[in-house]
């Protein structure tokens, strides 16, 4: 488990101060995939780097399994870093080393294994990321997705308990992004590895994260299970990011709904209720038909969800109660 307490970090450059982190408090549970989402310059990269002390916070504690990493000396820090894997946006592979030798690199640095043990481990990792055929190739001969697979294999070499992903899919095309995200999810499940990732894309969070924190101006402005944050964003920064993602029924309909009479309701279904004919049943029961104006259905990680905006002519309070009895969240939308 990771706990961040009151992290602050200020950069000084050219005579002006830039606050990168402002009183960050965060708890990340063992085995979860935790997303940190924010725009560029929001501080997410700095925040991620405090977890392995590549960035040293000015104040605050970084507790990893109860141990404060900010108190470690250089040697202690190296030991910690060997237990924390890191994957980078631009892969950061060593160009002079083949695929197998890139994966071997952290094992050589650690110096704990014999040559044969290292070779065995490298074979396992090549297997895990599906790059056996490329083992003798050099990074320049690989596609972006293959490079990131090498990056992931390298990060896992020393059996880390925590994997940090710095925009790991931002340099990849959408299809490759999906395959890398699936690989990360697979690793998370099979190895029980905790993953902390930063991204500016809601789609990445939706695909693999359990919980998410939204960072804006060096502060965490919203946090919670992905479904909650995604379907009911509270902070403006979150709402904007959800809207850009285009996969939630966000209401940007002001002015476009001039001829819709009645009340607008936002209905949110998750899990099993997604599959039930709730709208038809309640419409019938209240003898007031509903018209679907906007909506989306999909999956958040593996939870099905649906979010609809419906026009309703009838008693909104009654409808709200009826929906909530059926496990569907219902909010009255004001345009």
């Amino acid at each position: 488990m990771i706990a961040l307490h009151h992290l602050n970090k200020t950069y000084e450059g050219d005579g002006r101060q830039v606050i990168a982190l402002r009183d960050i408090n965060l708890q990340i549970e063992t085995g979860e995939v935790f997303g940190i989402i924010g725009r560029s310059g929001a501080g997410k990269s700095t925040l991620l780097r405090t977890l392995n002390l590549l960035e040293r916070p000015d104040q605050g504690q970084v507790l990893i399994d109860g141990q404060d990493a900010t108190c470690l000396d250089t040697a202690g820090l190296r030991v910690l870093r060997r237990q924390v894997g890191m994957v980078f946006q631009h892969f950061n592979l060593l160009n002079h080393r083949s695929v197998a030798n890139n994966i071997r690199f952290p094992l050589e640095l650690a110096g704990a294994l014999s040559k044969t043990a290292i070779n065995t481990r490298v074979d396992e990792l090549l297997e895990l990321v599906g790059l056996h055929a490329q083992r003798e190739q050099y990074p320049s001969q690989l596609s972006g997705g293959q490079k990131q697979r090498v990056g992931i294999a390298r990060a896992l070499a020393n059996h880390p308990k925590l994997l940090l992903c710095d925009e790991a899919t931002s340099a990849l095309d959408p299809q490759t992004t999906q395959s890398i995200l699936q690989l990360l999810l697979d690793i998370n499940r099979r190895l029980g590895l905790t993953i902390v990732l930063i991204t500016h894309e809601m789609a990445v969070v939706r695909a693999i994260c359990d919980r998410v924190a939204v960072i804006e101006g060096g502060q965490i402005v919203e946090r919670g299970p992905v479904a909650d944050v995604f379907l009911h964003p509270q902070h403006e920064a979150t709402r904007n990011m959800v809207a850009e993602d285009g996969h939630a029924a966000t209401l940007d309909l002001a002015g476009k709904l001039g001829n819709v009479s009645g009340t607008l309701l936002r209905l949110t279904f998750v899990d099993a209720t997604t599959y039930e004919p709730v709208i038809a049943q309640i419409g019938q029961a209240l003898a007031a038909p509903m018209s679907i104006l906007q909506g989306s259905v999909g999956r958040i990680k593996d939870r099905p969800y649906g979010q609809l905006i419906v026009g309703f002519n009838g008693d909104a309070e009654l409808a709200k109660r009826a929906f909530e009895e059926r496990g569907v969240r219902c909010d009255v939308v004001t345009v």
Partner: peptide, 18 residues
Amino acid sequence: VDRGIVEASQAMGATLWQ
């Protein structure tokens, strides 16, 4: 040399000499 390579090495727990 790409700074990212230095950062990656640091993240892997490399010493300055390494």
